[in-house]
Design a protein around this nucleic acid. Structure first.
Length: 555
RNA sequence: UGGGGGAUCGUUCAAUGGUAGGACACAUGGUUUUGGUCCAUGGGAUCGGGGUUCGACUCCCUGUCCCCCAGCCA
C-alpha cells in the first residue's frame, strides 16, 4: 500500500502544518490499547491510522500497553493484541508499557504536590461523587483540599508505602471545583489498589488514573501527535493542564470519531459479556467483530486495511455498513482464492449414457483470471451430486439452470440434458436423470450451440464429506443499543447467526486442502478451513457469499 | 444560556470563497465456461431561516436535531 497518498484527512493536514512550520521533524504516533480484552475492528481503525501515519511520514508508531488498571488486565490480552496488530500487517519495535513509567509518574506527582497543585483527599468515593456536583451545578471543595504541601508529601508517600486500605485515600489535582468541565473538578490522579499487576507484580499498591498517566506516557515517548477518539475531547484541557504545570514536552492530542459497524457492538466490556455468558464460543468466534473473530472467519488482513482506509477519518459519528466491508473482502478473495467445486445441498444426478465404470480426470483452472494460481484435475463419472436448487421441475422463464428437457453445462465437463426424474412418495426429487453430449468435453461445443446455464457438480464416488458453517449478523438491529437501556442489547442478538451444514460434498482435489488457503466454492462463496478442523473433520467457515443477482429476481 | 463535539447523495469521505466529486449501495445495458468478476451508463445530497459577496458547503447571525461528559474504568 502506498501510505504516502493513502491517508489524507484533517489530522494529516495538521501534521503537514507542523512539519512545514518546523515544529516537528520526525513524526511519532502511538497505539495505546489497554490489555483488558481482545482488539476489534474499531481498534483496527486506530491502528491503521496511527501506523499508517508513521508510514506516510517515515516516522514511528509505538505500540504501548496502557496497563494502569491491574484489576482488569492480563497477559492473555497482551499476547492477543501483539498477535492481532502484527496480523493486520504492522511492524513495531519492542512493545512499550505504561507500567514501565510508574516510577517517573510517581515522581511527577510529587512534583505536582510541591507545586501546590495536588492534594491527598480522605473522602470516600461516594462523598467525592457528591462533592463533584452535577452537569448543571458546580462542585464543592473537599475539606482536605488545603492541606500543606508537607502533609500531602507524607500522606502520598504513605499511600505508596501501603499504609492505607483500598479506597481510603486518593491523590487529586487541585484545579477548579467550579469548572463547567467535569474533568477539571479536581480529578483523581492515584487510587489505592492492593492488586497484583501482570508486570510490576506487587511493587505498587497505588495506580495512576488514565488522565494523569496518558499525557505523561505520550510526553515520555516524545509522541508528536496523540490521536484518540472523540470522547476524550473533554479531557484535552486536563491533558494540557498537567503537561503545562510540569513544564515537560507537550504532545498534541487530536480526536477523531470511532468506527461503528452495523449490526454489532464495539464495547470490549460488552463483547466480554457475550463470551462470559456463552452467547458466542469465545473472543475469536467468527461472528464477533474482534480481529481474532474476523481472522478465524477468514477475512484477509489486506481487505480489512483497505476497508478502513476507504472510510476516511472525520469527526462525524455514523455506521459503516457490512456490505462495504464485504466488498473489500470479496475484492481481495476474487484475486487471491482458488476456485473449487463443492455441493452444499446435494441431490443425485445420473448420466444414463455414461459408462458405469468409466471416470475421467478433467482439467480445471484454479482462477479464471489468473493462470499463475495453476490448474487441477477434477474427477468426472456417471453419478454426480449437484445443488438441489440447480434443478426446478416447473421453472420460470428466466431460470437458466436444469429442468426436464433443458440443456446446461457442467462446469469444466460436458453439456447435459435432463430426461426425467425420480421422486419419493412425498414428491421430493431424489434422482435427476440426464444424457451427456460426448462431443462437448471441457464444456464447449464446436457447433456454437448456446447454453445459458452453467452449474457446478462433484463426482459422487470421488467426493469428500465436509461441514460448512455459515454466519449471519450478530444482532438484528443496526444499533443494538438503540432505544433501550444500555444492557438490553442482548435481546437483539440474532438467534440464527450460525448455521451448520453437515452434508457437504467437496471435489476430490480437496483431499489436500490447506488451512492457510482461501477457497472459492464456485457459485457459492468464499471459504476457509476452521482453525479447529482437521483431515478427519473438515469444517469450512463461509467468509462471505458471492453476490447473487438471481436472488433479486426470485423476490 | 452547564461544558464539549457534530450535521453534504441511502451510507461514508471530499470540495479549505470559484462547475458539489469519489467509493459502497441501487438501477439499466454489455462481456463471460461462476446469475461471480469486469466494462459502460444512470438516478441521487449541502439541516431550516436570514445576511455578507460578482460568486457561499465554505464567512456572519439565528433556529433545529444528534452524540459525549457527573468511575477511585480507559
Amino acid at each position: 500500500m502506498n501510505y504516502k497518498e493513502l491517508i489524507n484527512n484533517f489530522i494529516t493536514d495538521a501534521i503537514d502544518k507542523d512539519l512545514e512550520s518546523g515544529k516537528h521533524k520526525k513524526i511519532i504516533t502511538r497505539f495505546p490499547p489497554e490489555p483488558n480484552g481482545y482488539l476489534h475492528i474499531g481498534h483496527a481503525k486506530s491502528i491503521c491510522l496511527n501506523f499508517g501515519i508513521a508510514l506516510k511520514y517515515d516516522g514511528i508508531c509505538n505500540l504501548r500497553f496502557d496497563d494502569t488498571n491491574p484489576e482488569k488486565e492480563n497477559i492473555e490480552y497482551v499476547n492477543s493484541i501483539l498477535k492481532d496488530v502484527r496480523w493486520l500487517g504492522f511492524e513495531f519495535d519492542e512493545p512499550l508499557y505504561a507500567s514501565d513509567y510508574f516510577d517517573m509518574m510517581y515522581d511527577y506527582a510529587v512534583q505536582l504536590i510541591k507545586l501546590g497543585k495536588a492534594y491527598v483527599d480522605d473522602q470516600d468515593a461516594k462523598t467525592i461523587k457528591e462533592f463533584r456536583g452535577t452537569l448543571t451545578e458546580h462542585g464543592t471543595n473537599s475539606p482536605f483540599r488545603d492541606r500543606t504541601i508537607e502533609e500531602n508529601l507524607i500522606l502520598f508517600q504513605n499511600m505508596k508505602g501501603g499504609k492505607y486500605k483500598d479506597g481510603e485515600k486518593v491523590l487529586r489535582a487541585k484545579i477548579d471545583m467550579h469548572s463547567p468541565n467535569m474533568n477539571m473538578r479536581d480529578p483523581v490522579l492515584y487510587r489505592i489498589l492492593h492488586a497484583h499487576h501482570h508486570r510490576t507484580k506487587d511493587k505498587w499498591c497505588i495506580y495512576p488514573m488514565y488522565d494523569w498517566a496518558h499525557g505523561l506516557e505520550d510526553s515520555i515517548e516524545n509522541i508528536t501527535h496523540s490521536i484518540c477518539t472523540l470522547e476524550f475531547e473533554d479531557h484535552r484541557p486536563l491533558y494540557d493542564w498537567f503537561l503545562k504545570q510540569l513544564k515537560i514536552y507537550h504532545p498534541q492530542q487530536i480526536e477523531f470519531s470511532r468506527l461503528n459497524l452495523e449490526y454489532t457492538i464495539m464495547s470490549k466490556r460488552h463483547l466480554k459479556l457475550l463470551v462470559d455468558e456463552n452467547h458466542v464460543s469465545n473472543w475469536d468466534d467468527p461472528r464477533m467483530p474482534t480481529i481474532s473473530g474476523l481472522r478465524r472467519k477468514g477475512y484477509p488482513p489486506d481487505a480489512i486495511r483497505e476497508f478502513i482506509y476507504s472510510l476516511g477519518v472525520g469527526k462525524n459519528d455514523g455506521y459503516a455498513s457490512i456490505e462495504h466491508l464485504e466488498y473489500f473482502v470479496r475484492k481481495y478473495l476474487n484475486k487471491n482464492s482458488k476456485r473449487i467445486m463443492a455441493v452444499l445441498d446435494p441431490v443425485k444426478l445420473i448420466i444414463d449414457n455414461y459408462d458405469e465404470n468409466k471416470f475421467e480426470e478433467l482439467e480445471a483452472k484454479n482462477n479464471p483470471e489468473d493462470d499463475s494460481l495453476g490448474f487441477r484435475k477434477v474427477t468426472f463419472s456417471k453419478e454426480l451430486y449437484i445443488e438441489k436448487d440447480d434443478f426446478m421441475e416447473n421453472a420460470p422463464k428466466k431460470y437458466f439452470r436444469l429442468s426436464i428437457g433443458k440443456e446446461v453445462r457442467l462446469l469444466h465437463a460436458y453439456y447435459i440434458t435432463c430426461t426425467h426424474i425420480e421422486k419419493d412418495s412425498s414428491g421430493v426429487v431424489k434422482k435427476i436423470h440426464c444424457r451427456y453430449d460426448s462431443k462437448t468435453k471441457g464444456g464447449w461445443s464446436e457447433d456454437g450451440r448456446k447454453v445459458k446455464g452453467t452449474i457446478h457438480w462433484v463426482s459422487a464416488k470421488h467426493s469428500i464429506n465436509a461441514k460448512v458453517k455459515v454466519y449471519d449478523k450478530l444482532f438484528n438491529k443496526i444499533n443494538p443499543y438503540d432505544g433501550d437501556e444500555k444492557n438490553d442489547f442482548i435481546k437483539h442478538l440474532n438467534q440464527n447467526s450460525l448455521k451448520l451444514i453437515n452434508n457437504v460434498k467437496l471435489e476430490s482435489s480437496m483431499i489436500n486442502s490447506l488451512k492457510s488457503e482461501y477457497y472459492q466454492f464456485v457459485r457459492k462463496g468464499y471459504f476457509k478451513m476452521d482453525k479447529d478442523a482437521d483431515k478427519d473433520n473438515l469444517v469450512f467457515n463461509q467468509i462471505v457469499n458471492l453476490r447473487d443477482s438471481w436472488k433479486k429476481h426470485t423476490k
